[in-house]
Design a binder for these strands. Structure first.
Lengths: 155, 155
DNA sequence: TTGGCTGCAAATATTTTGCACTGGC
DNA sequence: GCCAGTGCAAAATATTTGCAGCCAA
């Protein structure tokens, strides 16, 4: 979260362009609904759920269906343009701003999710591969806790 | 996985005793069905799903219901005697042998889950807390890949 | 004895899917 | 104009819950 506002905006535009490029590369169509979902995900600093994306899309396209949002998100996930943060209870969250695996810090009270600054786990992955013989494809690292705002409220 | 067979067996007995102690401490009853689930979880080196536990329990108690297994697993989770490894697609897996958070290595093909040897992440957690102001309660670290056996089969 | 536990079935909730119609390319 | 994409509704699936009867303490 050390990115200045201007470079963050540039980052969002780059992400959107990258998503569009990947879609066109594979001959997927860019419909207005899809574009709306892309835009939301490209600047998804709050790691939205499908429902949150759906609510946002409906503001500009009221007829959009939930199924379409699901399909678009799954498509982007398959294109590795969105990172899924899945939970057993449902209400999965999505990160379209940084689609590569990275640590998340999750508030168990307000359910906010942020991206902490942490050194990469590349070396741990290599160590694991050497030790176990696994071919390691991906990883997931989540920390669960209570955010400063919720800690304050409690008192 | 460097534990010799004898100490592993002792470990399993200790886990079972600990589970029973926690149940009695809080005045939960020890029914035959519950005991069967406890026993399976105490030596759950394969991180079984509820269905797997259910299949196992039915061998000794054919009338056992799936709901009872769910209830028992949830109870043990609440007592922090079982670690839930939840997945968005369902089919959560459970670790009753090591109920504290620890890394898992998951084969994306055969869905086996093992416990790799990795140094603890305690210092990372502390670093995070200091940096973000979060009160960190728990974490989860999963690596996804293909195990040596499945790599072999592919060729 | 008694209230927690079990087992059955029905209910939940999220995500997926089938299909006819629409519209991007 | 073709066929992928959309929207609706129904389906699929894992998990939870209500409740009557049972049994561990």
């Amino acid at each position: 979260m050390r990115i200045a506002l201007k470079s963050r905006k540039e980052n969002v535009n780059l992400r959107l362009e990258e998503m569009l490029r990947k879609l066109k590369e594979r001959d997927f169509r860019v419909t207005p609904q899809r574009l709306a979902v892309l835009k939301i995900l490209a600047c998804s600093f709050n790691h939205p759920s499908v429902e949150m994306i759906y609510a946002e899309v409906k503001k500009t396209f009221p007829t959009t269906s939930l199924a379409t949002v699901y399909k678009t998100v799954i498509l982007l996930k398959d294109l590795e343009q969105v990172l899924e943060i899945g939970f057993p209870a449902g209400c999965n969250r999505y990160d379209g701003n940084i689609p590569q695996p990275h640590p998340h810090l999750i508030c168990m009270q307000c359910e906010s999710i942020i991206d902490p600054d942490l050194e990469s786990f590349a070396h741990v992955t290599e160590e694991l591969a050497a030790e176990t013989g696994f071919k390691i494809v991906s990883h997931r690292l989540d920390f669960f806790g209570i955010c400063p705002a919720c800690l304050k409220k409690k008192r």
